[in-house]
Amino acid sequence: MSDSKIKHWLEAFRLRTLPLALSSIFMGNFLAKWEGKFSWSILTLSVCTTIFLQILSNLANDYGDSIHGADSAEREGPSRAVQTGVITKKQMKTAMFLFAGLSLISGLLLLGVAFADRWPLILVFLTLGLVAIYAAITYTAGKNPYGYRGLGDISVLIFFGIVGVFGSYFLQTRQLDWPIIWPALSCGFLATGVLNVNNIRDIESDQKAGKISIPVRLGRDKAVIYHFCLLSLAMLSGMIFIGLIDGSWSSFLFILTFPLIVKNGLAVKNKKKPAELDPYLKQLAVTTLLFVILFGIGLVW
Results as ranks from 00 to 15, higher is better:
F38Y: 06
F38M: 03
W40P: 07
S41K: 11
S41T: 12
I42Y: 00
L43F: 00
L43G: 00
L45H: 00
V47M: 08
V47H: 10
C48D: 12
T49A: 15
T50W: 06
I51W: 00
Q54W: 09
Q54M: 11
I55D: 00
I55V: 10
L56K: 03
N58A: 01
L59F: 09
L59C: 07
N61G: 09
N61A: 07
D62Q: 09
D62M: 04
D62H: 02
Y63R: 05
G64N: 02
G64K: 00
G64P: 03
D65H: 04
D65C: 03
S66G: 10
I67M: 07
G69E: 06
G69F: 04
G69M: 06
A70Y: 05
A70N: 08
A70H: 04
S72V: 04
P78S: 15
P78L: 11
P78R: 13
S79D: 15
R80D: 06
Q83S: 10
T84H: 08
G85V: 07
V86M: 11
I87T: 09
K89G: 15
K90N: 14
K93Y: 12
T94E: 15
M96Y: 10
F97Y: 15
A100G: 15
G101L: 09
L104H: 05
L104Y: 10
I105K: 03
S106Q: 00
L108R: 13
L110V: 05
L110D: 00
L110P: 01
G112E: 13
G112N: 12
G112L: 09
V113M: 03
A116P: 12
A116Q: 15
W119Y: 13
L121V: 05
I122M: 09
I122R: 08
I122V: 11
V124P: 08
F125Y: 02
L126A: 14
T127M: 11
L130Y: 03
V131H: 07
Y134F: 13
A135R: 09
A135L: 13
A136I: 06
I137F: 11
Y139W: 08
Y139R: 04
Y139N: 06
T140Y: 03
T140S: 12
G142P: 05
N144A: 14
P145I: 01
Y146N: 02
Y146S: 09
G147I: 04
Y148E: 08
G150C: 09
G150S: 07
G150N: 08
L151A: 14
L151D: 11
